[in-house]
């Protein structure tokens, strides 16, 4: 059985910097897969390659069995493959509810839809997702006035609103209050189990990723260093060296 997302031999070079070299990995449907690696090891670059932010220099990326490495960002997003940004990107000048409404799925959208208003169900759904991440009270607040952690949560809610099949999260717990992290892990698991969204998560917090993911890939210097279950990764000397070496 082929996985939902298959990355095969993907490389990406920026000027002289080899950000990704011959990366091969797979994200099975319904799973939570982790991606770790020291700073600058090319994790974010890999995400950007997958969602079509830049052209890749080699390799192939397949989603639901078909090649997507030549599609554009918006086309890939409409296939249900979404990413959040490490430096959150939200609409600071709009309130949270509007941020949610802009994020509705644009998969099937005719001219009439484009010119109509949001339906009551969509507003309800937006409220539900905001409630889910704990921002319901702030829904008429300008998103730009939220704290960084809250903006991260908002971006997560926006991604949920879009109804993705595969959601790629770039450091979802960065900037989140440690006491709230457990709640967030819980929510990520619920999203995965209840809604059935496959997750592919970049994370620096080892405790989080060990708890969350069933399978973890580790990058170092743009290359795939190791992969395995959390326990295997924890015991892998190469991974430990890579992290210690990086500091």
């Amino acid at each position: 059985m082929s996985a939902l997302l298959e990355v095969e031999g993907v490389s990406k070079v920026f000027g002289g910097v080899i950000a990704n070299a011959d990366i091969t990995l797979a994200v099975p449907e319904g799973a939570i897969v982790g991606l770790i690696g020291p700073n600058g090891s090319g994790k974010t670059t890999l995400f950007s390659s997958i969602v079509g932010q830049h052209a890749i220099d080699g390799g192939s990326i397949r989603y639901e069995g078909s090649e997507i490495s030549r599609l554009r960002v918006a086309e890939i997003a409409r296939l249900g493959l979404l990413r959040t940004f490490q430096q959150t990107r939200i609409y600071g000048g709009m309130d949270c509810l509007k941020n949610m409404l802009i994020s509705i799925s644009h998969r099937r959208e005719g001219l009439i839809d484009m010119l109509s208003r949001h339906s009551a169900e969509q507003v309800d759904e937006a409220d539900r997702h905001l409630e889910f991440v704990g921002l319901y009270e702030k829904r008429f607040l300008l998103a730009g006035d939220l704290s960084f952690g809250q903006q991260k949560l908002l971006e997560f809610a926006m991604a949920l609103m879009n109804g993705p099949k595969l959601l790629m999260l770039d450091e979802p717990t960065a900037g989140i209050n440690p006491t709230l992290i457990n709640g967030l892990i819980d929510r990520l698991k619920r999203v995965n189990e209840e809604i059935g969204i496959t997750l592919f998560v970049i994370e620096h917090n080892m405790r989080v990723i060990m708890d969350l993911a069933q399978h973890i890939y580790c990058l170092a210097h743009g290359e795939l260093l190791a992969d395995g279950t959390p326990d295997e990764i924890r015991g892998d000397n190469r991974v430990i060296d890579a992290y210690l070496g990086a500091h």
Binding site: V73, A74, L82, Y91, G92, G93, S103
Partner: peptide
């Protein structure tokens, strides 16, 4: 408005910009 404020983000949400 989203296109005005951040067109790249709009695209990454799948908007038919």
């Amino acid at each position: 408005n989203a296109i005005r404020d951040d067109e790249d983000k709009a695209e990454s949400m799948g908007l038919h910009t």
